[in-house]
Design a protein around this nucleic acid. Structure first.
Ligand SMILES: [Mn+2]
Ligand SMILES: [Mn+2]
Ligand SMILES: [Mn+2]
Ligand SMILES: [Mn+2]
Lengths: 227, 227
DNA sequence: ATATAAATTTAGACAAATCTAAAAATATGT
DNA sequence: ACATATTTTTAGATTTGTCTAAATTTATAT
């Protein structure tokens, strides 16, 4: 078991959830994650976060100085990516093999991501045909931690009259996903930006040729890849 | 969530493992399970078992009187069967869909059995074609807790010259399962009892027509269904 | 029946993960 | 610069699940 990452850095479910949260909060921004932000994300109290951060620092998976926030070490980053990889692969499994809809998978994947077995996840990956993106368009980290880039952008940031393919969602709440289902918008669909309304930043688009009017809130949560 | 069994009796992983252990130790014998027996099965100390038993009694899932051992209540029995159902369905999944061999599945199923989602397990059941037995020949409880009976018996108990189908193993240790693989004995194979050796209770059999000599230890861990 | 052995429970301790309430450090506004 | 607000940490408690060591109960054997 010499080669197995998880052998030396065996984390509890809770620790893994914290690593994931730190990863997501730190993505983009270069500065450390604040205790309060982490407490918000984890739906727990700042004092609990402080306790946990100290344990994680002990284990060498985060950088931490009192009052200065927290960030992942190399190890921590690798572990976080490994959990995210499992989460997203299980989401694909639930949708592709068990006919879950994309708004139902998160809670179950949240549990499944903690199952410890390299062999299991490798074979699941194979069963699913080595997918690169999860049902919400989020990239699935490879075994080595590398992320496929999709060079996508938010629909709200697209230039007028440009065309693209719908490739992901920023918000993956059940409410938003159900809205998209109801309005026949799905990943892979062609989308063309016809008109932008100055006043409320809403947009008129063609989705697979069908015209539809979308609020700024919708347009700023939908990722599009230009073509 | 009114109808959901697990909503009212939400157990921790450890509690579920204890319920399963009590179920297995009590199967057959009508008398209560002793603290020491349970400690042996759970690989923990008798004092820890006493603590846990008291929590389980609090929750109404076991009958318990000091010094008198423990047994499952109706609720406890339903919960244990639900965990066993999940364990065995996941084992089938690992073998059928992910090409695990039957000696590799136990450890992973031991984790997967604790995933909480009725929908998940129902759909997994469907994906697998509603199997009745797991890779070791053990019956998979139905949703209502009923167990398909296989009216099987140990090879060592079969009368001379009788024939049957190999349907299960009593010992499902990796060592035993690998021995069977190596000697080309698998579930579903025809087996005929040719000769019993008085001295050491070993047997000579035909497995799919091929003669082989098996020790008593082997014969008393292999289940056969008469034909 | 009584001594001894075995099984079981109690007492007291610990680590993990959380909480509330209070204290300390940092940031902000005039 | 200084008062106030916000953020973060500490102190102390709780729950779960485990442990060791000691006490107690039940079983067994002469
Ligand atoms: Mn999780
Ligand atoms: Mn996702
Ligand atoms: Mn288990
Ligand atoms: Mn099995």
């Amino acid at each position: 078991m010499y080669f197995c990452l998880n052998y030396y850095y065996r984390m509890t479910h809770s620790e893994e959830n914290y690593l994931k949260a730190i990863f997501h909060l730190n993505k983009g921004g270069a500065k450390a994650v604040s205790t309060n932000a982490l407490a918000g994300q984890m739906k727990t109290k700042p004092s609990s976060v402080t306790d946990m951060i100290r344990r994680l620092a002990e284990k060498g998976v985060v950088h931490y100085k009192k009052y200065q926030g927290v960030s992942l070490t190399e190890k921590g980053s690798r572990l976080a990516l490994s959990v995210i990889r499992k989460h997203r692969l299980w989401e694909v499994f639930l949708v592709e093999k068990l006919s879950f809809s994309w708004d139902e998978v998160h809670e179950v994947a949240e549990q499944l991501e903690h199952i410890k077995s390299e062999q299991l996840i490798d074979r699941l990956d194979k069963l699913l045909g080595f997918p690169k993106f999860d049902p919400h368009g989020d990239p699935i980290p490879a075994k080595d931690g590398s992320l496929p880039s999709g060079d996508k952008q938010l629909l709200s940031n697209m230039p007028l009259h440009s065309r693209g393919i719908c490739v992901g969602v920023k918000d993956s709440s059940s409410a938003f996903l159900k809205f998209l289902d109801k309005n026949r918008i799905a990943l892979g669909y062609r989308i063309e930006l016809m008109e932008k309304e100055e006043f409320d930043s809403s947009v008129r688009v063609l989705v697979e040729g069908e015209p539809i009017h979308l609020s700024h809130q919708i347009a700023s949560n939908l990722y599009v890849k230009k073509i």
